[in-house]
Design a protein around this nucleic acid. Structure first.
Lengths: 336, 336
DNA sequence: TTGAAAGCGCTAACAT
DNA sequence: ATGTTAGCGCTTTCAA
């Protein structure tokens, strides 16, 4: 029961091993009768082809690597992976990969050593890179080894590695336009933690720059700062922002993990949302759906990104940016 | 560069393939000179053994499966994996596995079909089961296939599969004892969501039963209820609890994901912690560390559980329960 | 201390 | 429509 080989299946079905192989792969036309007998034998023996043998012979494994640092960019620890909203990416990749008949080996760590071993030993047919950052060793690795690969996140410098990303630039722009369109003139950006800037994480930069340039084009000042995802971070951010510009009437917040902290801190200070401050969030999840009033937000479609990445890996094609759209909730009020 | 085979390494080092193999495995004594030449050749060619070939010949893969349903037990969705604090288990397993030289293939889904394929095709040397529940198909599968396996979570019914778990019974007991020791007589349990009960998730039950029986032994009434992880859930829970027992002075909360919601709801009702209600939490994470006053809590050591699971898988041994301890914070006040 | 050679289970080219 | 066979890259007896 535990193991049986193709020759046993063949014997039981009264055919040759190659016939069994062809039934399995569909690479040859087989008579209905033969196919039926083979399939029955497979069922009876609970046969499953040996993955190693198959990979040795066929040169592919039907396994891909998901290279995910699982690094906590805000605390600088690699052993405290509390990044909110990260799991959907992992889940999404695993799930989309399965739809293509691929299994996923999860390769953690900041560097590329573990990934190099996995790729070098021909364990995988391709690689998906999560949390791509500037100067990412892993990008160089997949280029050097000429491994099929897709980056989730548009790298800061152009590379030969195709990527899939959410249009964070568009997201930032939409937020600014929404607020400006409602009369806001003093808009702050609570960006992701300093660590994400130091590391050059893709989304961090695209949001920052698009908010900045959209405000500039509107002739408005830019007030942005990286924020630690902590109560302290929220306090410092609000202090700094209102010191810079006491007339601040709206903030754009990057990351749903910041929202509860921000809301609590505002409450503490007796500021109401949206009466005293309008809030738009880039990011949306189960964690924030309960909030009253519902957040005006731009959803970041992690599952779709994952599907697109797998699609790109499977069929190839150009880089892909998923479009952003803003959902008006109850956390922005006109400011005329 | 991308690929090279053992025979090329052998040729370059002027030895036979078997010698290279023995240098790699250490299964034979090799002269210093030979070893040096082989190792240099390996480096120069950037050689890595073909995983498939190795697995075919050696009968092992140095890969394990992490079977994680990634199911949202509170919303009943398999595509919204927002379970807080789940990631450290995944990360912990991958990390501990790497320390043993193992890679990890992540197998999602509630059923056992995907897992059966992975195990049946000899892709993995063993399996770690996460989120074990009553009547778990996956337990039966690994028993049937006689695959080396470890469950993370003590199954409700005894099985032949060894397990590692945190002592949730002890955790529940400690919480009750702490509160009773400080004079509390009316203690509520805000347990995990109804879905976790329906599914018979291990921790769910052990906490419930230990809180219940410890209270009983102390001659005190038990007030417990499953709670959805949402604002609504928090509201319903508090309504129900205080209706059942208006003199309720303390609650034990299962899961750090509930804390923010609970605190906000209490604030809404003008109740202070711990003045009006004492709170003890089973669960502790980056998400709750910012809370003031700091939570009185029992930490659930996900990373240690993961290490222990991998250790069990590697070396075998009896089931293992990690001991619980309570950290006194500022959310419990004496009730004399 | 090292080499030669068989064979793990499968797929696909070459038969018929 | 089906069978025969070579060989993928490695480990490990068996031999020297």
């Amino acid at each position: 029961m535990p193991s049986s080989k193709i020759s046993e299946v063949a014997r039981r079905a009264g055919v040759s091993p190659s016939t069994v192989s062809y039934v399995l792969s569909g690479n040859r036309s087989i008579s209905e009768a033969t196919r039926a007998r083979v399939e029955q034998a497979i069922r009876e023996l609970n046969y499953a082809p040996h993955a190693g043998a198959r990979s040795l012979r066929a040169g592919k494994t039907d396994v891909i690597a998901l290279a995910d640092p699982l690094y906590d960019w805000s605390s600088g620890a690699v052993d405290k992976p509390h990044i909110l909203g990260h799991m959907p990416y992992v889940y999404g990749v695993v799930d989309a990969a399965r739809r293509h008949g691929w299994n996923v080996v999860l390769v953690t760590g900041l560097g590329s050593a573990a990934l190099e071993k996995v790729v070098g030993s021909k364990m995988v047919d391709g690689v998906v890179l999560l949390e791509v950052r500037a100067n990412d060793e892993r990008l160089k690795l997949v280029e050097r080894l000429a491994t099929p690969a897709v980056a989730m996140g548009m790298p800061l410098e152009p590379t030969a590695v195709p990527f899939v990303d959410f249009d964070f630039e568009g997201a930032g722009r939409l937020c600014v336009e929404h607020l400006v369109g409602l009369g806001h003139r003093h808009i702050g950006l609570l960006a992701s933690p300093p660590g994400t800037f130091e590391q050059g994480l893709a989304y961090t930069h695209w949001i920052w720059h698009s908010v900045q340039s959209t405000l500039n084009k509107a002739g408005l000042p830019f007030h942005g700062l990286p924020v630690e995802t902590s109560r302290k971070g929220a306090q410092v951010a609000l202090d700094t922002l209102f010191e810079e510009e006491p007339a601040m009437s709206a903030v754009i917040v990057n990351g749903e993990g910041m929202i509860d902290l921000l809301m609590q801190e505002l409450q503490q200070r007796g500021k109401e949302v949206p009466t005293d401050l309008s809030v738009v969030v880039i990011g949306w999840s189960e964690l924030t759906k309960h909030i009253v009033p519902p957040l005006t937000h731009v959803n970041v479609p992690a599952l779709e990104m994952a599907s697109a990445a797998i699609e790109l890996l499977a069929r190839g094609g150009p880089a892909k940016l998923l479009p952003a759209s803003l959902v008006a909730g109850g956390t922005v009020k006109p400011n005329w």
